[in-house]
Amino acid sequence: MIDLFTPLSPAQKEDFQRRYLAYLQGRDGEPQWQTHTFSVREAFYRDLEQRPVRRTGAPVVLQDVFNRHHERYRPEEKLDEPTLWALCVAKTNRGERFGVEYAHRLGTLERDGDPGNPKTYIGIEEFYHTRILRDVLRVIGVEMEMLNPKASQQLLIKAMARLPESMSLPLVLCGEICGVAFFHLLLHKARELFGDQPGPLARIEELFAQIMVDEVGHVHFARSRLDGTSLGIAKRLLPLVARGLLDGMPEYYQLLGRERLMEEILRADVDTAALPYPDRFIPFDAEAPVRPAA
C-alpha cells in the first residue's frame, strides 16, 4: 500500500509527470477539447455500441421513481437498494463535471486542450465519466439526465476554482480519493445486486473499469503536485471533505452505511482498488517505498 500523504522528491515528481503524460497519450489518444473526446476512447465506445447489453425481465429500478428522486436532495426512507444504487451512480459525477465546466468557462483550463498538459486529459476524462455512468444506468434500464449539484456545493466548487492551486490542490486530492472509494464500493454493490444476470453485470464492470483506472491516475497526479506541508493538510482535511461530499448525496449513507463509507475513504488505498485492471497507471514507486523528500 502506497502512503498517498508521503511527499515525493523533486526528481520523483519530474519522473512521474513525464511517465503519466506518456501514459495518458497512449491510453486516451489525441484530445479534442471542443468536443470533449479522445481518439482512442471513441474507438472503445464504438465497440460498445456494436455490442449493446441490457438486463432482461422485470425492471429492477422504475424510471418514474428514479426521476422523482433524482431531482430531490434527500430520498424517501423506503427506497429499495437497486434504486438507491442507481441514484448514487447518477449523482456521483455531478460535482466534478460541474467543476470542469466552470473552470473551462473561467479559462483556467486550456481553451484549445494542450496535449502536453495532463490536466487537459483529466478534464476530458470527467466528461467521459458522465457518459459512462449514463451507460451504466442504461444497462439496468434507466435513463439519466445529468443535473447540477445542489447550490451549496456549486458555491464551494466555484470557490475552489478561484483559489490559488496551493490552496485548492489539497481539496482536489481529497475529492479524488473519495471518488475512488465511491466507485469501488458501488462496483462491489453492483455484483451483489445484479449478479443474477452475468452478461449485464459484465458490461457494468467493463464500464466501471474505465472510471476506476482514470480516478486512480487522478489521485496520483494530484499527489505529485503537492509538497509535504500540503499533503499533511490534505490528510487532515480528508474526513471533512468526505463528509461534505456524502452529505450532498445521502443515498450513499442509506445504501452502504456511514461507517463502511468512511472506513473505505480514510484507508486511502487507491492502488488496491485498481489492481484488477491491467491498463491502470502504475506509479514509479509502486514496487518500492517512497523516501520522504529531503
Score class of each variant (00 low, 15 high):
62 L>R: 13
274 A>P: 00
100 V>I: 10
89 V>Q: 00
68 R>P: 02
240 L>K: 13
194 F>V: 05
114 D>M: 00
279 D>N: 14
77 E>P: 04
268 A>K: 08
57 G>S: 06
164 P>I: 07
211 I>E: 07
24 L>M: 07
90 A>F: 06
77 E>N: 12
4 L>V: 07
127 F>N: 12
258 R>G: 06
236 R>A: 10
138 R>Y: 10
202 A>N: 11
220 H>I: 12
23 Y>D: 10
291 R>F: 03
115 P>G: 06
191 R>K: 13
31 P>W: 07
184 H>W: 13
157 I>W: 06
125 E>C: 03
200 P>T: 09
158 K>S: 13
109 L>S: 04
267 R>M: 09
143 E>L: 12
238 L>N: 04
271 D>Q: 11
74 R>G: 12
270 V>M: 01
24 L>P: 07
278 P>T: 06
260 R>D: 08
54 R>K: 14
60 V>P: 04
108 T>V: 13
63 Q>V: 05
153 Q>E: 15
101 E>Q: 08
56 T>Y: 13
148 N>K: 14
82 P>S: 04
181 A>V: 05
116 G>W: 00
278 P>R: 04
139 V>N: 06
291 R>P: 04
18 R>I: 04
113 G>L: 07
5 F>K: 03
266 L>M: 08
264 E>A: 00
51 R>I: 09
273 A>M: 03
278 P>A: 07
209 A>S: 10
267 R>Q: 08
61 V>D: 02
158 K>E: 15
253 Y>M: 00
187 L>Y: 02
185 L>D: 02
92 T>C: 04
89 V>E: 03
44 F>M: 12
274 A>H: 06
231 L>N: 05
60 V>L: 15
70 H>A: 10
69 H>F: 10
216 V>P: 02
156 L>N: 14
260 R>E: 05
284 F>M: 14
100 V>S: 02
105 R>S: 12
3 D>Y: 00
160 M>I: 11
136 V>F: 05
291 R>K: 12
55 R>M: 15
61 V>R: 06
141 G>I: 05
261 L>R: 01
149 P>Y: 09
208 F>R: 01
215 E>Q: 02
110 E>H: 14
141 G>Y: 11
65 V>S: 00
94 R>Y: 01
195 G>F: 11
2 I>A: 11
110 E>K: 09
208 F>E: 10
131 R>F: 06
188 H>Q: 15
41 R>K: 13
156 L>E: 15
8 L>T: 02
277 Y>A: 02
221 F>L: 07
69 H>R: 08
59 P>D: 00
209 A>R: 07
91 K>N: 08
99 G>I: 10
64 D>K: 11
134 R>Q: 15
132 I>G: 07
40 V>H: 11
202 A>M: 09
244 G>V: 04
59 P>G: 08
182 F>V: 09
41 R>M: 10
126 E>T: 00
241 V>A: 09
146 M>Y: 11
111 R>H: 13
202 A>K: 12
57 G>K: 14
87 L>S: 03
157 I>F: 05
292 P>K: 00
47 D>E: 15
29 G>N: 03
245 L>D: 08
276 P>Q: 03
14 E>H: 11
82 P>M: 05
131 R>T: 02
141 G>T: 09
16 F>G: 03
114 D>W: 03
8 L>F: 03
106 L>Q: 12
254 Q>I: 07
70 H>R: 12
253 Y>W: 04
272 T>H: 10
234 A>I: 01
286 A>S: 13
167 M>T: 13
200 P>W: 14
